[in-house]
Design a protein around this nucleic acid. Sequence first.
DNA 1: AGACATCTACTAAAAAGTTAGTAGATTTGT
DNA 2: ACAAATCTACTAACTTTTTAGTAGATGTCT
Lengths: 131, 131
Amino acid sequence: MKEKRKLKIDRPLTEAELQLMTAIWILGPCTVKGVQTELAKEKELAYTSVATFMKILETKGYLKSFKSDKAHTFESLISREEYEKLSLGHMAENLFDGDHSMMVMKLLNDSHLSKKDLEAIRKVLNSRLST
Amino acid sequence: MKEKRKLKIDRPLTEAELQLMTAIWILGPCTVKGVQTELAKEKELAYTSVATFMKILETKGYLKSFKSDKAHTFESLISREEYEKLSLGHMAENLFDGDHSMMVMKLLNDSHLSKKDLEAIRKVLNSRLST
DNA sequence: AGACATCTACTAAAAAGTTAGTAGATTTGT
DNA sequence: ACAAATCTACTAACTTTTTAGTAGATGTCT
C-alpha cells in the first residue's frame, strides 16, 4: 500500500494563488525569482508580492520550502492533477449537487468539442465500461 | 434569430453568493424572506444580511427586482444552467488551459461513476457523434 | 574584509467579501 | 388613523485577498 499524504483543502485556491501555483507546476522546484519570471508572461508582480504569496501558500500547506545555496527553494505539495481533481469535486458539490455525470453531460453538450475530441472521449469511456 | 441578453461575468459568484443564487434558482421569483427561509436549511443568516446580498447580486447584474405588493420581488437574470456552463468554461480556462475534453477525461477517470451513469454518458456521446 | 546585490521577514494598506445593525419608510390590522 | 409589524437603505465592522514597501540578514565578488 502506497503511503498517501492527504492534503486537507477546505477552500480552493484563490484566483491569484492559482496563477502562482500554475507557474510553480510548470517550473517544478523553484525560487521566488523563477516564479516571478514565469508569471510575468501573464501578469507583472513585484518580487516581494510573489514572495508573500509563496509564504501564504506554504502556510496553507500547498508548498514546502527549504533553504538551498542562495534563495529558498519551493516545492509543490500537490500536483496539478490532484488539484484538478479536487477542484472538479468542489465544483460538483457546489453547483451540481455532487453529480459528476451531470457535469460530463453538460460538457458534452455545451463545449465545442471536435470529432477527434469526442472519439478520444469515447475511447476512454469504452475502457471504463469494459471492466 | 433569438434575442440573447449577454451577461458579462468577469469573476464567478463567490461562495456565499452562490448559496444565495442556488436558493433563488430553486424558488424562482422570490422575496428576501423567501430566500432567507430556503437558505436556512443550509445556513442561518440574518434577514438584513440576505437583503444585502440580494442588493449586491442585483448590482452585479445577476438579479433584477421590482416592487410588488409588500416586499420587493427578485428574479434571476441567469439560469442555473447558464451559470453552470459559464462556470465550467471558467474552470476550463483557469485550470485546463481551455481544453474542455481534458476535463471530461478527468471526470471519467477520477469520478466514481456507476455503470448506469456511464451508459447515459455514452448515449449522449453517440448522439453528438452521429451528427 | 568591505561593498554590493539579493533575499527573507515583517508590516501595511487597499480592495473585495461576509455579516449584521439602525433608522426611516411602508404596509397592515383594528 | 394609530400601533405593530415588516421592509429597504444606509452604514459599519470584521475577514480575507491582493499587492507591495522597508529593514535587516545573508550571500557574493574582489
